[in-house]
Amino acid sequence: MIDVVERPQLDAGLHALESEAIYVIREVFGQFERPIILFSGGKDSIVLAHLAARAFAPARLPFRLLHIDTGHNFEETLTYRDRFAEEIRADVVVRKVQDLIDAGRLAEEPGPHPSRNGLQTVTLLEALGELRADAALGGARRDEEKARAKERFFSHRDRHGQWDPKAQRPELWNLFNGRKHSGEHFRVFPLSNWTELDIWRYIAAREIPMPSLYFSHRRPVIRRQGVLYADTPFTYPLPGETVEELDVRFRTIGDATCTGAVESRARTIEEVIVELGLTRVTERNTRGDDKRSEAAMEDRKRQGYF
């Protein structure tokens, strides 16, 4: 009697996306000297790091994870980060926006609920320089936003970390060109062709444990310009605003000042997938940082944002 172990089978589409992502990750290993993985604790970077670990199995993941800590974290994110890194046997490097503020090299935005989005970019570029990283792998997907729809898998950054969308290098077949001058670096996006639904279906198929924030929980929130913000020390009610108790989950996880929640009763991965199948709003709609202008994402990316 043969004992047959049932493995969760990926469907053809997910299988192709997984193979493509692993191919890109291995190209990074083959072409660069000091690649790192940008790890936010959000679902895309979790899937990216998970794929990277698979790409080199049974050997150990040859890249470190870099977390740019804005100081405005959800506690769950930090707990999850450390446990996840331990599971995939990866080293985490943390660089804090707060450290640069304390050193007087960065100044907080004026006004209530300052966003540390811009400061995060400075911290990131400094960290890449300090670690002499020549490639930074990110979990960005082209379906997220219009400017990201134009992004390459291997995306060149000049010596100031800047992106020039009008002078992007052509990328043909599966020939990824990582050649660069010293001081320049690449952002690499192995999940370019994935959609939000693909990410969740992959998480389900590969049984990847996720931070609890992604699932429905009761939480005090503040409704502001159509976005539900968690009531935290960094996002508190302004005069005239009230705090409501709602069943919510987060579709994206980042800095608490710009990450909104959605009302949801989805408590499991499967329920999240069902919910996404019905939803008619993109996940970036819960991001306050994208609502600043029509080209907000492009402008931030040019400066070196994720």
């Binding site: 936003e145 219009k146 400017a147 729809a149 134009k150 969308p165 009008k166 029509e294 080209a295 492009e298």
Partner: peptide, 8 residues
């Protein structure tokens, strides 16, 4: 689909 500032 035309997402870049220059395109618009």
């Amino acid at each position: 689909t035309d997402g870049l500032r220059a395109e618009r």
